[in-house]
Design a protein around this nucleic acid. Structure first.
Length: 825
RNA sequence: GCGAGAGUGGCGGAAUUUGGUAGACGCACCGGACUUAGGAUCCGGCGGGGCAACCCAUGGGGGUUCGAUUCCCCCCUCUCGCACCA
């Protein structure tokens, strides 16, 4: 394979070598600094797409680079193997989700291997394997013991086509994150993880995740949504308890003139039942609750409501205020009830105007007097309190605290912090997922499956029903069990866990994938975790990344993991675009990686992915660009083969001349490539620098290389550098060329080159001469020339003279080694 | 509406970290060489205007500076995220 570059032969050869030699096997070694590099594991959908190839190519550069830097690198791969597409495919092909999944895994594993990624395949795991999810079930039971799991009846998001409940995080703009169908609300029993217990910590740590993109942190902060305010109890007029509200504006309490409840709020019906309002309230609630999400919350949605017939009492004014049901109040947020202050909240203002409710101004802006009768919108800014009893005259910011304190002393509420984040609903009425390990006993209630009975294996000996409905509830032999507590007849839980549960801790399991004495081998996890660099798509900015952070904190608090956070650094890569749109089957613009690899080889495909754009940006796919990458590799191949028999000693040159220029080029490029990879992940500019270097090397006269020993030595050093610098990007062809140059196979064991800064300095430098900031000439001066010397040379340049003729040089600004600006006037 | 990011040749993108020759590298295109042939390869050109000296040019407008793609202010456009959050 000497003459022509044959990617297929080269790649097969080296992939076999890496596998045979177990080059990428990672082992704990406390004497070495570890580096845990992780890319988000794929869902085994059938075959690799370009997004995967890009993600994993980026990761592979980092992995190989860190290996060459001498770090002990853990770079694992596995499968996010539970999930709905498997069920859909099973229905379509009259097959079984497990078979479909396993076939896909086999195919995609081959594809990954064909790409030459540096994974330690001995650590491969699949989340649908009972030996994986048994520990997830084990953790579920521990969380249950610690009160971090609970079951409740609640109004949940339900996706009809997917026939399952969705967590809040899994609803995007009112639609299912997976299939895009609008979700409907449903009341249902389900299991929840108490992520709200960690809301505060999850938020606080956002400030300490300095290795994460600000964009992702902002999204997480908004999702958690902390707001400072007060809780306030409004007693119901007719005895019978009170309505609790949360408000960020306790300073406006004296202006609260009515109360608004979310239609889902149980009090709506409770309060109206038996009153003349009952019928109207029922009709209103029914209408709102059956409305789809779009029309209820869309921009044009009008604020509407109905009086419930009940009154409650403003705790500070003692005034009775009517209780309304209002369509714009969210049951999910705060307490599902809002004190309405029409003068100082735009929604309440509109609502009050519509239904003729009183508007009381309690905040007056500086130098203005608001009049409820003439106001055209709510006043929401700062001001001084009026109509507020003892608080009159106080600025509203101070009043927030003062009023909250007053409420606390009255036992009617007090200062509080509210979070937007809800608990994580993990129940899924689906088959292809990890069974929730509990048993329902008519006598004992919910009984945990005993640890020794784990795993609760998902029965695979089933006929998958065409309806798509989970077969589990109908599997009598599986469902009917003896209660572990009383021994009486009982039923298994038939909900399975949200598949995001599996992906919330797989990175821990990679540290000890075959450990069978527990979920986590602490020694291994303490050594490898946290993940030093995580790489994946931005689409997981909230879901997966937030859940994983939560799990890490739970495991830490259980004492089985030390890290506070799972991922120290996060890189979110852009999408792969073609013809201006994301690659998708429906758009018909998909490019199949497998076809490309068989046409050009994996190295070319990898190189293009890395060269065409920096990782965080979208990558515009062009077939011409791939051709370009392929051409470059051919040029490198030919260049190396032209000189592979060159024999030369160690380069030692220091005197100016061709050898010195070549060495300067080499060391300049080493510096550039190293910095681009290490500090910025700017692989596109790193590759560009190597291209520039090879371009310059091919311009050197081969006869001169052969004839002069010092040039030959410098040239050989340069060629080796090109190959080494390229090796993280295009590892197969690099190994082949390295071997041709007499190097030992296994380039990740070759130390990454360092540059000699002494070689970067030049004896003579080019100084750009500007006159009044515009370039007027260049001069070459000795590198150590004084300002006087440079100035003299500059003034002597003929073009410069034209621009200063007849004028005085008022000032000269010298940027050493670069530029001289003459200010004339 | 709010928040974040981005606007540079025909295209993808450099230079923004530290203000210092704008357009690296690649693609496309044009010309040439080799050739029976070239869609292979190699060499050269390639922001716009001008014969040239030069002038203009980094979304638009202002500002700071000897000097601004880079810093500051205003505006426009695009992308992404959130969107009645009380």
């Amino acid at each position: 394979m000497d003459k022509r570059y044959d990617p297929d032969a080269v790649e097969t050869k080296w992939q076999r070598f890496w596998e045979d030699e177990k080059i990428f096997k990672a082992e704990k070694d406390s004497t070495k600094q570890k580096y845990y590099l992780l890319e988000m594991f794929p869902y085994p959908s059938g075959s690799l797409h370009m997004g995967h190839v890009r993600n994993y190519s980026i990761g592979d550069v980092v992995a190989r680079f860190k290996m060459m830097r001498g770090l002990n690198v853990l770079h694992p791969m596995g499968w996010d193997a539970f999930g709905m597409p498997a069920e859909n495919a099973a229905i379509k092909n009259r097959s079984h989700p497990a078979i479909w999944t396993m076939q896909n895994i086999d195919h995609m594993r081959d594809q990954l291997k064909r790409m030459g990624f540096s994974y330690d395949w001995d650590r491969e795991l699949a989340t649908c394997h009972p030996e994986y999810y048994r520990w997830e079930q084990w953790l579920f039971l521990r969380m249950l013991e610690r009160g971090l799991v609970y079951r409740k009846k609640s109004i949940v998001n339900y996706c009809e086509p997917c026939q399952t409940v969705l967590a809040n995080e899994q609803v995007e703009a009112g639609c299912c994150w997976r299939c895009g169908t609008p979700v409907v609300q449903r009341e249902q029993q389900g299991w929840f993880f108490k992520i709200t217990n960690y809301a505060e910590e999850l938020l606080d740590w956002c400030d300490r995740l300095t290795g994460w993109p600000e964009k992702v942190l902002t999204m997480q902060r908004n999702w958690i949504g902390r707001s400072r305010g007060a809780r306030i109890f409004f007693d119901l007029e007719d005895g019978g308890g009170s309505i609790e509200v949360f408000t960020t504006r306790p300073d406006t309490l004296y202006g609260a003139t009515f109360m608004s409840l979310a239609p889902e709020h149980p009090l709506c019906l409770e309060l109206s039942t038996g009153t003349p309002q009952e019928k109207q309230v029922r009709e209103f609630i029914n209408r709102v609750l059956t409305q789809d999400w779009q029309s209820r919350t869309g921009e044009e949605a009008e604020k509407e409501g109905v009086f419930t017939g009940a009154y409650c009492v403003n705790p500070l004014t003692g005034r009775r205020i009517p209780v309304y049901v209002a369509n714009f109040v969210l049951y999910d947020y705060g307490t599902g009830a809002v004190m309405a202050v029409p003068a100082h909240d735009q929604r309440d203002f509109e609502f009050a105007r519509k239904y003729g409710l009183p508007i009381v101004v309690v905040i007056q802006p500086d130098g203005d007097r608001l009049d409820p009768a003439t106001m055209s919108e709510a006043y929401v800014d700062q001001g001084v309190l009026v109509n507020s009893g003892e608080f009159d005259g106080m600025d509203n910011i101070s009043a927030m605290g003062a009023i909250a304190q007053k409420l606390a002393s009255m036992g009617k509420g007090g200062p509080t912090i509210n979070y937007r984040i809800r608990d994580w609903g993990i129940s899924r009425q689906r088959y292809w997922g990890a069974p929730i390990p509990v048993i329902h006993c008519p006598k004992c209630g919910v009984v945990p499956v005993p640890d020794e009975a784990l795993p609760v294996v998902l029965p695979t000996d089933i006929e998958f029903p065409e309806s798509g409905r989970s077969p589990l509830p109908d599997l009598d032999w599986w469902v009917n069990v003896d209660c572990p507590a009383c021994g009486g007849p009982a039923r298994r839980e038939t909900d399975t866990m949200d598949t995001f549960v599996e992906s919330s801790w797989y990175f821990d399991r990679y540290a000890c994938p075959r450990y069978n004495k527990g979920m986590i081998d602490q020694d291994e996890v303490d050594y490898w975790l946290p993940v030093d660099q995580y790489i994946g798509g931005i689409e997981h900015a909230i879901l997966h990344l937030l859940y994983s952070r939560f799990f890490t904190k739970v495991l830490r608090d259980m004492g089985i993991k030390k890290s506070d956070e799972p991922f120290t650094n996060l890189l979110t890569q852009g999408m792969v675009i073609k013809d201006g749109a994301k690659m998708s089957k429906s758009k018909g613009n998909v490019v199949d990686p497998e076809e490309l690899v068989s046409k050009y080889g994996a190295d070319t495909v990898r190189l293009f992915c890395l060269f065409a754009a920096p990782p965080e940006r979208d990558l515009d796919w062009t077939s011409e660009g791939v051709e370009g990458a392929s051409r470059f590799l051919n040029r490198v191949w030919n260049l190396i083969h032209q000189f592979k028999d060159l024999r030369a000693g160690q380069p030692t040159t220091t005197a100016e001349g061709p050898a010195r220029s070549i060495r300067r080029l080499t060391h300049r490029t080493i510096k550039k490539v190293t910095e681009d990879i290490e500090t910025r992940f700017h692989f596109n500019t790193a590759v560009a620098a190597i291209m520039e270097m090879t371009n310059e090397l091919s311009r050197v006269d081969p006869q001169e290389v052969q004839a002069k020993p010092d040039v030959a030595a410098a040239y050989l050093e340069a060629l080796k550098a090109v190959v080494v610098l390229l090796s993280p990007f295009v590892p197969h062809v690099a190994e082949e060329l390295w071997e041709a140059l007499g190097g030992r196979p296994g380039m990740v064991r070759v130390p990454w080159p360092t540059y000699d800064s002494a070689l970067l300095v030049q004896d003579e430098v080019l100084i750009v001469v500007q006159v009044n900031g515009k370039k007027r000439g260049e001069v070459i001066v000795p590198a150590d020339a004084s300002e006087e010397v440079v100035k003299k040379a500059a003034l002597a340049a003929s073009n410069v003279q034209r621009f200063i003729e007849g004028k005085t040089v008022r000032k000269a600004v010298l940027v050493p080694g670069k530029l001289l600006n003459l200010v004339v006037g």
